[in-house]
Computed example of a mutant assay.
Amino acid sequence: MSLFKNIFGSSDESENSSKMSWTQLTDLGQLNEIIDLSTTKPVLIFKHSTRCSISRMALKQFENEFDLEEKVTPYFLDLLENRSISNEIATRFDVEHQSPQLILIKDGKAIYNVSHSDIQVDDLRTKL
């Protein structure tokens, strides 16, 4: 059991053990904030399913490689706790819902949208 926990993590682990300074996306009103912020600095939204090992692995890899603190403001969405926000993101930014998913918002529009193994910091860097 501990071998699997070491590889995949446990589902009851705190998701806040990241070195990143995520802003938790927990309220629909924050989408207006994201749109406003994105006119001066790009905003990324990472949609994560806390019960999915693939999502957990994508998140950990992204966090380990992330070095764009000065260039982008990161928001984190716990998909299971905030499905209505995820649905609104799909509508407002005209993106298909996926999980895990990374969406880059600039000037109020989604300019980059990837999921699963396509979530790569190097690829994100080219969009900034």
Rank of each mutant, 00 (worst) to 15 (best):
E65I: 00
A58T: 11
K106C: 09
D107S: 15
Q98H: 07
I54K: 08
D122N: 14
D107V: 08
T40L: 02
L102H: 05
N87A: 11
S117L: 11
P42H: 00
S21I: 14
L3K: 04
L79Y: 06
L124I: 13
K19E: 10
I105N: 05
G108V: 07
E63H: 00
R92W: 01
L128I: 12
W22L: 01
L77H: 04
I54Q: 09
L104Q: 04
N113S: 14
L128M: 10
E69D: 15
R51G: 15
V72A: 06
S49R: 05
L80W: 02
E63V: 02
L25W: 03
H116M: 07
R125F: 07
S18R: 02
K60M: 06
S2C: 07
F46K: 06
I54R: 06
E63F: 00
K41F: 00
A58I: 12
L128C: 09
R56T: 15
K106V: 12
T126S: 06
Q30Y: 03
D27V: 00
K71L: 15
L25E: 00
S10D: 10
I105R: 05
L77T: 00
L128W: 09
D12G: 08
S14M: 05
F76P: 04
I45G: 08
N87I: 09
D122L: 04
D107K: 15
I105W: 13
N6D: 09
I45F: 01
I103K: 08
L68T: 12
R56S: 12
F62Y: 05
K5R: 11
I103G: 07
M57V: 04
K60Y: 07
R56K: 10
Q101R: 02
I119F: 03
E96L: 11
T73L: 13
I103Q: 04
S117E: 12
T91N: 09
P100C: 08
K109P: 12
L59M: 13
S17L: 13
G108T: 10
I119Y: 03
K41E: 00
V121A: 10
S38W: 02
E13Q: 07
M1D: 11
C52H: 01
S38E: 05
E81K: 15
L3C: 01
M20T: 08
L59P: 06
S17H: 10
K19N: 14
L31G: 03
F4K: 15
L28R: 00
E88F: 03
S21V: 12
D78G: 08
P74W: 11
I85S: 01
P100L: 11
S53I: 00
R51A: 15
I34E: 03
D27G: 01
G29C: 10
D94E: 09
E69P: 05
Y75P: 14
F4Y: 11
E13W: 00
N113K: 12
K19F: 05
I119T: 07
V43Q: 03
L79N: 05
A58L: 15
V43Y: 02
C52M: 02
E63P: 04
E63D: 08
